[in-house]
C-alpha cells in the first residue's frame, strides 16, 4: 500500500507546555486508504488528527498534503482546509443555521457556487445520509446521530480529497452509533481517503486498510487490522486490547 501518498507526516513533534503530546510521528496515508487510529485516551490520537489540517500547530517536523507542505495561517491554508473534510466528536453544526444551510454555506462562501447549485448538491448529500426530510430543521432539533450524519454531508459537500474523523461516534448513544458508521463504511467502500480516530474496533476490523496504535504520543504499531487484532506485536497493544475486548 501507500504507493501514492496523500498525507505524509515526518518527524512531527508537538508540546502543550511541558507535555510532549506527539513524539517523532511518521505516518503516510496513501490515496484511497482508510487508516484507523486507536489508543488509550491521552495518547495523542485526536491531536494527531487535528494537526493534519492544522487546527493544531506542530513544533517540529513536516506535514505534506498531496505533495505540498501545510502553509502558514492565511489564504493558502484556508484553501487547503477546504480540500480536507473534518468530522468532530461534538458534531459542531452551525447552531444558527438550518440543516440545509449548514451543508450549503461553505459551498457558496468558499467554493463560490451559486446558491441554487449548492442547495441542489446539499439535497443530494442529505438524501444520501438519509436526512433529506430534515433539511429545514435546526441542529438542536436532531438527534446526535442525525447531527453527525449532517456533519459528514457538510464535509463531503466540499468534495474533499481526504476526510478526517475525530472520534465521530464517541458522543453518541449506542443505538445511534451504527447509523453513523454505516455512512462511513459506505465512504470507505467508495475509496475515500480516511483517517479515523475511534474506539469502534468493529469498524477498524471491517473497513480499515491499516490500524495505527498510539500510546504516550508515539506510534507503537502500524499494520494491517487482522494482524493487529489477532496478534498484536507490543505489550502496550496487548494490554490495551485485553482491556477493551474483554467485555
Amino acid at each position: 500500500m501507500a504507493v501514492d501518498p496523500l498525507i505524509e507526516l515526518r518527524g512531527v513533534n508537538k508540546y502543550y507546555g511541558e507535555l510532549h503530546v506527539l513524539r517523532d510521528i511518521d505516518l503516510t496515508v496513501g490515496r484511497g486508504e482508510v487508516v484507523v487510529v486507536i489508543g488509550p485516551s491521552g495518547s495523542g490520537k485526536s491531536t494527531l488528527c487535528r494537526t493534519i489540517n492544522r487546527l493544531e500547530t506542530v513544533e517540529s517536523g513536516t506535514i505534506t498534503l498531496d505533495g505540498r507542505p501545510l502553509p502558514q495561517e492565511g489564504r493558502a491554508l484556508a484553501r487547503l482546509r477546504a480540500e480536507v473534510g473534518m468530522v468532530f466528536q461534538s458534531f459542531n453544526l452551525f447552531a444558527h443555521k438550518t440543516v440545509l444551510q449548514n451543508v450549503s454555506l461553505a459551498q457558496v462562501k468558499v467554493r463560490g457556487r451559486g446558491k441554487d447549485d449548492a442547495d441542489r448538491r446539499s439535497r443530494e448529500l442529505l438524501d444520501r445520509v438519509g436526512l433529506l426530510a430534515h433539511a429545514g430543521k435546526y441542529p438542536a432539533q436532531l438527534s446526535g446521530g442525525q447531527q453527525q450524519r449532517v456533519a459528514i454531508a457538510r464535509a463531503l459537500a466540499m468534495e474533499p480529497k481526504a476526510m478526517l474523523f475525530d472520534e465521530p461516534t464517541s458522543a453518541l448513544d449506542p443505538e445511534m452509533i451504527n447509523e453513523v458508521l454505516e455512512v462511513m463504511r459506505g465512504l470507505a467502500r467508495e475509496g475515500m481517503t480516511m483517517v479515523v480516530v475511534t474506539h469502534e474496533m468493529g469498524f477498524a476490523r471491517a473497513s480499515a486498510n491499516r490500524v495505527v496504535f498510539m500510546a504516550d504520543g508515539r506510534i507503537v504499531e502500524d499494520r494491517d487490522p487482522e494482524g493487529f487484532f489477532t496478534n498484536p506485536g507490543s505489550d502496550r497493544a496487548k494490554d490495551f486490547l485485553s482491556k477493551i475486548l474483554k467485555h
Binding site: N53, L55, G74, R75, A78, R79, L80, R81, A82, E83, V84, G85, M86, F88, S90, N92, L93, F94, A95, L105, A106, K109, V110, A151, R154, A155, M158
Partner: peptide, 12 residues
C-alpha cells in the same frame, strides 16, 4: 468547535 468547524471547511 463552531469556529473550528468553519475553519475546517476552508473559511478564512
Amino acid at each position: 468547535g463552531q469556529g473550528e468547524a468553519a475553519r475546517s471547511l476552508g473559511m478564512n
